[in-house]
Nucleic acid binder design. Structure first.
Lengths: 312, 312
DNA sequence: AAAAAACTATCAATAAAATTTATGGCAACA
DNA sequence: TGTTGCCATAAATTTTATTGATAGTTTTTT
């Protein structure tokens, strides 16, 4: 049994297809066929059920794949140990970021980070929280920035900052004249929300529900970007909530529509999250340092109340 | 990096010598030299400091060895998964047993076990508790039978039985006329003990100390086997304590010297212990079943008080 | 229903890698 | 100063992995 064989098994299990898996491994399809057969012969058990289309794992196969993933990941950690020893911070690093954090946070720290750690090849993907959790678990990304707490067993979290929610209340809205807004003033029925799958949407819903016992799911309008939410709000379609960092770069006219909450200010907790195996921890810590550094100057709220990002 | 390379590293680390390690791996010495060099080149770090005689691990080397042991062990578990799936109970199994359990317990279950599980190649070693702990941790034995609880972080325990302590009081001893003996009657100064390193010795010391506050370490006589203890006792050199199973096959004259304790009967807890990774768990469970089966008929004490086997 | 496409297994050839035998060098030791 | 123990190196050999070509299925398309 070799690590390579186990790696091939993982590839086929993921792609449910020898040919595609072979491409991902940069070898030819017969290589996979033969090596996996060899492993199956040695263990004297079938890992894949090749009669099913697409190919499926057998019952033992599933267990073997779990263990194989374990072994392959642990083997990566040996290079990690060496890097750590040398104080080397480099190599490829895949980072996921949720959509409502991406446009504001990324420009703030990216330049700094690549300047400070030029040997790290950052590959950044915009992903939903759900996708992030799954990709951290299967090792497709090394870490992610998301709203927390997530209560995921295999995922660790390090808080980067708390980002308050800010009300965006257009001119003719009933709340426009309130200087400060209280959570109890919110009415989810005239609140513009992001479309399903965004955890910021779930955060807002949790916030509204916290004070009104509404389970009425008939929301008026939904959008995929916060930019659009602001535009729709300007059209008089309702108020909306913005994450604080988004309020920093809107124009002056629109700034007049911003209303802060009474304290304790509802806020989301934004963390860098990663698999509990702590692979590439040096880079994760480097990211944490850089981001904490740039945020320190940007957000200065004292009394915040964290809203859960989880649905229901 | 291959599992084989990691295995070679482990062998050299353990033997502190390439030549010996090569023998243990059933390859020639240049194989180890070259494969380990190759790994070191790939990682671009020295694992061994070859200037030291005998050879030593570098600082990184120690960390790498730990991780390598981890990976190699996890790789064994794949065969384990397959065996478990097939309900196959077989293969080599190394079992350690402490000296004071070995001669009484082994004859009771061995025949049964090899009859019930003929495919298991049992290799049994008599080892002290200390040796057992170290050999379980480095994977040299798969499980062991020892007095518990041990409070070892990486070792799990499954209790097999509780074995009462029985007093062996020779004719002319001050306690010989007591029908039952109370723990408070014991005096460690006229108690014959096993030599250092036996956990049964530590158990007896704990028992005596529990009622007398003696820290006087001047014990009269010490021996390596319980057989000898009985003989010495017969010579009038003091009383001694025997594990219950040892009292079953002594001769009738000597049986008259046996005195049970008042309840709660002090007893040792005897368990099968194994590494927390739970490798070869099917065999461990099979052993547990067989031993529990034979013991059920042999020991029937109700009210026991467990004495710790740990020194101090 | 036939043709095309998609997919895996197999085979022989080749490339790559691990292992061995033989040997050299170096340090410890007598 | 020769001997021994020990690791590294080199070349030869054996073993293993990989490839390109192709055959045999099943699925999809027309």
């Amino acid at each position: 049994m070799t690590i390579t064989q186990l790696y091939y098994v993982l590839a086929v299990a993921e792609n449910q297809n020898f040919t595609k898996a072979a491409e991902k491994c940069f070898v030819t399809q017969p290589t996979l066929s033969m090596q996996i057969q060899k492993l199956e012969d040695q263990l004297d058990v079938l890992i894949f059920d090749r009669t099913k289309k697409p190919i499926e794992l057998t019952e033992v196969g599933k267990k073997i794949v779990n263990q194989a993933r374990n072994i392959v990941n642990e083997s990566y950690r040996i290079q990690d140990i060496v890097d750590q020893q040398k104080g080397f911070i480099g190599g490829e690093f895949r980072l996921g970021i949720i959509p409502t954090v991406m446009p504001t946070l990324l420009p703030m720290f990216l330049k700094n980070f690549i300047k400070k750690h030029p040997k790290v090849k950052l590959k950044i993907e915009e992903l939903s929280t759900e996708e992030i959790i799954s990709k951290i678990n299967d090792g497709h990304i090394d870490a992610a920035i998301a709203a927390t707490p997530l209560e995921e067993e295999n995922i660790k979290e390090r808080v980067l900052y708390f980002e308050p929610f800010v009300n965006y209340v257009p001119k003719n809205h009933r709340l426009h004249n309130h200087k400060k807004i209280d959570v109890s003033d919110l009415d989810i029925d005239d609140m513009l929300l992001l479309e399903d799958g965004h955890c910021f949407r779930d955060g807002v819903i949790n916030l509204c529900k916290a004070f009104k016992n509404q389970t009425d799911d008939q929301f008026q309008l939904e959008s995929g970007s916060i930019e659009t939410l602001i535009k729709l709000s300007n059209e008089g379609l309702g108020m909306t909530l913005l994450p604080y960092l988004h309020t920093l770069d809107i124009n002056d006219t629109e700034k007049e529509n911003l209303h802060h909450f009474n304290e304790p200010t509802p806020a989301r907790e934004v963390s860098i999250i990663y698999h509990k195996s702590e692979l590439k921890m040096q880079i994760i810590e480097a990211l944490q340092d850089v981001i904490s550094g740039v945020i320190r100057g940007a957000i200065a709220f004292q009394n915040v109340k964290i809203i859960s990002p989880l649905p229901k």
